[in-house]
């Protein structure tokens, strides 16, 4: 179960607070608590949702006020990440400086429209349909934009293993 839900929780946590170490610690706590008390926990239909809510509670509990506002905004379905842009987060998440620079450079290759599409698809988790509505173009165009962006990114990120 750790394997199945870890990254799912991590993206959620990291998007909310942009802090890698805290997110890791929270998730570690959650799984430890699960491990220790699993007999006492209620049977849950939607495990993912349950875990996400648990993480959200931890975030709200532990973060200073401004960041808690960010988490609340996330819950309301808006995209927010404690003042960090999507590209910032992508760079932040990498560990080595060399890789960080490569990611920065790769992101620079995208036009602002392309970046927007990628962000909406992978960060905000919107469907092409939704993105199309938001940007007033056809879903087909959105798809093409996403496709081109990914091709460009792959070309520039090819040398590093992600």
């Amino acid at each position: 179960m750790y394997k199945a839900y870890y990254q799912f929780l991590f993206s959620y946590g990291f998007k909310a607070c942009a802090n890698r170490e805290m997110t890791k610690d929270w998730i570690h706590e959650i799984f430890l608590e699960l491990w220790n008390r699993h007999e006492q926990l209620p049977v849950v239909e939607h495990v993912g949702f349950y875990l996400r809510t648990w993480l959200k509670r931890k975030i709200l509990r532990d973060l200073p006020k401004e960041q808690a506002a960010a988490a609340k905004a996330m819950e309301a379905g808006q995209s927010f990440s404690a003042g960090h842009s999507y590209e910032d987060l992508l760079v932040q998440l990498q560990t080595s400086r060399g890789v960080k620079q490569q990611v920065e450079k790769a992101m620079e290759q995208l036009s602002s429209r392309q970046l927007e599409v990628v962000r909406m698809r992978f960060f905000d988790e919107m469907s092409y349909e939704q993105i199309a509505n938001a940007t007033r173009v056809s879903p087909r165009t959105v798809y093409n934009q996403a496709y081109e962006s990914l091709t460009t990114l792959r070309r520039h990120l090819a040398k590093i293993s992600l």
């Binding site: 990254q7 991590f10 990291f14 998007k15 998440l93 990498q94 560990t95 990628v118 960060f123 992600l162």
Partner: peptide
């Protein structure tokens, strides 16, 4: 690529956490 774009933890760090 998807993992990268959706801000998932890089494999090595994930292993360390595991």
């Amino acid at each position: 690529l998807i993992g990268f774009l959706s801000l998932q933890l890089p494999e090595e760090e994930y292993q360390q956490e595991y």
